[in-house]
């Protein structure tokens, strides 16, 4: 049972990472990851909305009539997004400006609606909360990672701190949209490659087990 909860939590980070495995929410992924900090902030905002909306939808799943669940979900998600937007504008104005239109667009982020529809609307509250945290964390991790790579190659800095004279040889294309696609695609290939290696190793190990068990028998 405990293992099951852990599975739900790690599911979003590794096995069905929303960015690299499910390829959801690519629009903000490509648009805001010009800097590592922006990616981190976007991820944090999405995680908050995902957690709150998952919990709220899970609580209300028996109250919301089945046929109008989508409008109800959208109202709930939009409420939390607006809360994030207001709080960010007040307390983090520079990040609010950097994220621009992509902050209100979290309302239609497909990760959030997908988790509401596929998970929160048919699972208990605690599981939905864990799923929200896991998926959000996976999204944040991926966005920050893409941001770090793009910022390093495109501006020669790490979280806004210039690294030596790397800025002089940086390739601006990596901050531009084209570079976003390049980095995203390459990282996705890398993640898939590593996952496959890990899976193969697991498979070989289990095959060895079976082989040795057969030998003993």
């Amino acid at each position: 049972m405990r293992n099951n909860k852990l599975n739900i939590l790690t599911n979003g980070v590794v096995k069905s990472n929303p960015t690299f495995r499910l390829v959801l929410g690519t629009c903000p992924t490509l648009a805001v990851t010009t800097q590592a900090l922006n990616g981190l902030a976007m991820g944090a905002a999405v995680t908050f909305v995902l957690l709150c909306s998952n919990v709220m939808i899970s609580i209300l799943k028996n109250v919301i009539p089945d046929r109008v669940r989508i409008p109800a979900f959208v109202v709930i998600i939009a409420t939390f997004v607006t809360v994030v937007q207001m709080v960010m504008q007040k307390f983090l104005p520079s990040l609010y400006e950097a994220l621009g239109v992509f902050l209100p667009l979290i309302v239609v982020n497909c990760i959030i609606l997908a988790r509401a529809e596929a998970f929160a609307s048919c699972n208990p509250v605690l599981d939905s909360a864990l799923d929200g945290i896991g998926m959000g964390f996976g999204f944040t991790l991926s966005l920050t990672f893409i941001g770090i790579v793009r910022e390093l190659l495109g501006a020669g800095s790490f979280f806004g701190l210039p690294i030596g004279s790397l800025g002089n040889v940086s390739m601006t294309v990596f901050i531009l949209p084209a570079g976003g696609f390049l980095v995203y695609g390459t990282l996705m290939a890398l993640v898939n490659f590593l996952t496959r290696i890990a899976e193969n190793r697991k498979y070989e190990k289990s095959a060895e087990h079976i082989a040795s068990a057969e030998k003993e028998a």
Binding site: L60, V63, I64, P65, V68, P71, A72, V75, I76, A78, T79, T82, V83, M86, V87
Partner: peptide, 18 residues
């Protein structure tokens, strides 16, 4: 009724945060 209730609570919450 359910939709109006959800929207009403959401609106009140946003007013408070604002």
């Amino acid at each position: 009724l359910v939709l109006v209730l959800i929207a009403g609570i959401a609106g009140a919450l946003l007013g408070l945060v604002n």
